[in-house]
Amino acid sequence: MSEDQIKNLEKEFEARIARDEKIEPKDWMPEKYRQTHIRQMSQHAHSEIIGMLPEGNWITRAPSLRRKVALLAKVQDEAGHGLYLYSATETLGISRDQMYEQLHTGKAKYSSIFNYPTLTWADMGAIGWLVDGAAIINQVPLCNTSYGPYARAMIRVCKEESFHQRQGYEIMIKLANGTPEQKEMAQDALNRWWWPSLMMLGPTDDKSVHTAQSMKWKLKRKTNDELRQQFIDQTVPQADLIGLTVPDPDLKWNEERGSYDFGEIDWDEFWQVVKGHGPMNKARMKARVGAWERGQWVRDAAMAHAEKKEERKQKQAV
């Protein structure tokens, strides 16, 4: 194809997205669109899968049967969401195994928040309330993103995740209204998860490299800073309501803006964790790679059995 032809195709492609048309797997697309989507979608899938680990850490220790089944179902949903997203990414011509390979070798990233440890039961509450809360803010606009398979996966994800945040907030309510010891546990969890949750919405706009392009392709509808403000404005009253204190001395309602002003985020910590120096980076990766390696003989056996079964069927047919 000549350069002019490609330019034309690209122009038509951008126009389709601007008209809110969806792009489907077999449609022509610029290589950069394909690569950006593979990167973002697989990163999203990896985050779901790694995200199972911090919460999975409390399944065997959940304090009641009701909490246990809710937590199991939630962590299972994360596996499901990882699966939907991997499948959607596979339509772009990369296999799940290739994506795993990228994750396991550290080439692919996942949401940094999961590199923090879950130390008490209240962390299950804080993760559901704050981490899922921030995730929802990120994800809801993706239901309208330009790539059809991604948009469809996200519609399913968002529908299913609607109970996740409630599950977490309910845990926090119970703790905040419980004994002083329980309330302290809840406050401690909020203290530890608040700032990482704000970081989860991404670097500030002036430091974010992908925003302009992502806006055009509807991978993003609002900037990181807008999303962060939205998250803070919706979450602070929820903390007030249950008598917990957001650990930010600079947090103050700004009448004029109709929003909360908030303190400086420690971006140095953020980048350190992204680079692999968070408290749990190594442990998370070890758990994932370990599960994959321990599963190799199981996957091989299933494949070998399927092939033998097929052979036997063929022989019988002869």
Partner: peptide, 14 residues
């Protein structure tokens, strides 16, 4: 429940 998140494939885990 101990296996949740550690299965041989995502499908099996679920």
């Amino acid at each position: 429940g101990e296996l949740c998140g550690h299965g041989p494939t995502l499908e099996t885990d679920i």
